[in-house]
Design a protein around this nucleic acid. Sequence first.
DNA 1: GCCGTTTTCGGCCCGACTGTTTTCAGTCG
Length: 597
Amino acid sequence: MDNVDIARRFEEVADLLEIQDESPFRVRAYRTAARTLASFGEPVAALVEREGARALTGLPGIGKDLAGKIVELLETGELPLLKELTAKIPETLVEMMRIPSLGPKRARLLYDTLGVETVDELEQAARSGRLVGVRGFGERLAATILDGCVKRRATAGRVRLADAEAQVEPLLRHLRGARGVLAVEVAGSLRRRKETVGDVDILVSARQGEPVASRLFSYREIQHELARGATKCSVVLRSGLQIDLRVVPPESYGAALHYFTGSKAHNIALRTLGVNRGLKINEYGVFQGDRRIAGQAEVDVFRAVGLPWIPPELREDAGEIEAAREGRLPELVEVGAIRGDLHVHTTYSDGRDELAAMVGACKARGYEYVAITDHTQAVRVAGGLDASGFREQARAIGRLRRTIDGITILHGAEVDILEDGALDLDDATLAALDYVVASVHSKLTMPEPAMTRRVLRALESPFVTALGHPTGRLLGKREPCALDLPRIARAARDVGALLEINAQPERLDLCDIHIRLSREAGVRLVVATDAHAVGELDFMRHGIDQARRGWCAAADVANTAPLAELLELIGRRGRAATAAPALRPATATPTRRRAPA
DNA sequence: GCCGTTTTCGGCCCGACTGTTTTCAGTCG
């Protein structure tokens, strides 16, 4: 039972308590504890073993009672409270509660009056008209609920960040055309760069709300309206994405931006700081009595409670407020700091663009280096290379190095980690490469101990530079494989291997929590696109978003280093001596090659 | 259920909007 498992149990308890109309503060206590656990870098089991159960009460939001429940879960894997709660009401009500407009109260009411227990039953009840007539339910609410059931089936609730962003850009441009608009900005989880978003919050600064609302409702992609108020509107786009729009006057814009960026937990924590200073913080400003003392700029809201500005990516109430107070906020890595892409495919395997095109595109981006990392043969669908294939590619890269200057080409591979942890390429071939990404592509459902052993064995190879897309997850499609990530991180640190933050929008693997945990374990990370075409080199920014959510500074990311430093870094592995000849042409100064035209 | 430079008891963030109901509860962020 790891931290995330325990956190999940606590969330379940919170949901069930809420449905049973328990004290909202008790509910919140479980949610706070769940968040603390989910983002805690070390397994709590290890903490308990080392310092005893009492140490748990040192964690934020965990007191004597919850510490006891954690220990109980660690020892027995069971939580009697959870059993007690599910004996009283079905767990499936929790799913029902996720339907928009249905909360704990209404879910409970429908269960009590109609015996509705699941989302499917809810949908049937809505279709048959049985909802109307239940106290507090009219035609409109029934229709909204039915719509929510259908949508839930279609989208499973959340949209990938990159997809949401692509839909929002044109809408933002549309809104900027409204009369009297001073500023338009995205807030919410999109601004926090969360990997998936439930809906999109847009904030507009303007004196008058009505022209902005009219402008919104004239947008052609709108499917239907959910709410239309003087300062707050909600619509659903044809794609199913929900947009919430808020209009505030300029003197409140900063406060509103902070407010609607969230996260909710971060806001609560910040407001509590305000309360302690006799301040009231809401979306209109920071108030001392009736007097507004801040609100125009976001930074002033933080200043009012004695904090520096905190980047949106960190606002999860996961230690950022404490770090800000103590001056420990990291200076987050930016996409402009990236000096090269270290995971790139070409037509040698399953890439869609030729070697020269990929290298040229990297050079055009201003990169100092690129690692060409085609698949090995185990990945048959990808047309992976064998040893002779890599020798042939090496010759092609050699020729290209003589004709292109200004960028250093590292010859690499994305070598498959086989079922037993062996690598899909012989040592001699691996030794001739400059950069080796080792990745799992098959048998992703192995149990955790076996999968962990498999990856640990791969990391033992002195030729492995980085572990590629470590958990193999595909957002919304495939769960991460069972892997003892903290252990992998420690092993990577000990052997000097890098952990990859794969920037493919559907991977974003590692996730934010694992990145932070790895960083804190002292592992160096690498943000790489895994590009299979020139256009995918743009994915770098998605990987950087993820790195920032994981508290990474530039120094935590290997490919922000200049070439010489990078080579030193990856050369720390045992293969430095053998790899040196292969690197020599790559490190030659550009002036020794082609003369400038 | 947590927490404490107001406190070990009594607080616990704050407001907009909807739909339903005749003054407000529920939901949402």
